[in-house]
């Protein structure tokens, strides 16, 4: 009975985590395009934030004042104004400069480890956590009867008062 409840707790936590992940990923998706000047500016800014200034040490295209960065911003702006989609703009740049120009590496076999690694790690961590917690339980003595349990709880509460930190 108690065990089911704990399993439920972990399941709930897991579902909550997954939901959070999905929300974040959904929020990260890019918006649709629109023709007017301010919108072009906004899209230029959004795109160039994810692109690398090639000649600088480690700056985005949006932040750099290097000559090449200015030229590239001009070209990107032109492409946006001509109605090209974000992915077309990105491929214009990657055709010329390669994936190095993207701060968000594309998802392809070479980057599977990069993109999936953290979540695989999280999975391993969760398994390990479950394993350790489970092992602790297995080695427990059989649960005490109600009266003893109440006394133990009272003692625990007292001890917590003393040492909680």
């Amino acid at each position: 009975m108690k065990r089911t409840r704990h399993t439920l707790l972990w399941l709930q936590t897991l579902v909550a985590m997954l939901l959070l992940v999905c929300t974040t990923l959904a929020l990260a998706a890019t918006p649709a395009l629109s023709p007017d000047e301010a919108a072009v500016d906004a899209r230029l800014k959004a795109i160039s934030r994810e692109l690398r200034c090639l000649v600088c040490q480690n700056e985005t295209l949006a932040d750099s004042n290097a000559k090449l960065a200015q030229n590239l911003r001009r070209e990107v702006r032109k492409l946006i104004a001509d109605g090209h989609s974000d992915s077309e703009v990105i491929s214009f740049l990657t055709e010329r400069y390669g994936d190095f120009v993207r701060y968000r590496p594309p998802f392809k076999p070479l980057t599977w480890l990069l993109w999936l690694g953290p979540f695989a790690l999280l999975g391993c961590g969760a398994l390990m956590l479950g394993h350790i917690v489970q092992r602790q339980k297995q080695q427990d003595a059989p649960p005490p009867d109600a009266a003893t349990a109440a006394r133990i709880n009272a003692l625990l509460a007292q001890q917590n008062k003393d040492t909680l930190a």
Partner: peptide, 10 residues
């Protein structure tokens, strides 16, 4: 295997 940048979006 090439050059990559991993930045803030990642």
């Amino acid at each position: 295997l090439g050059k990559l940048s991993v930045g803030p979006p990642y």
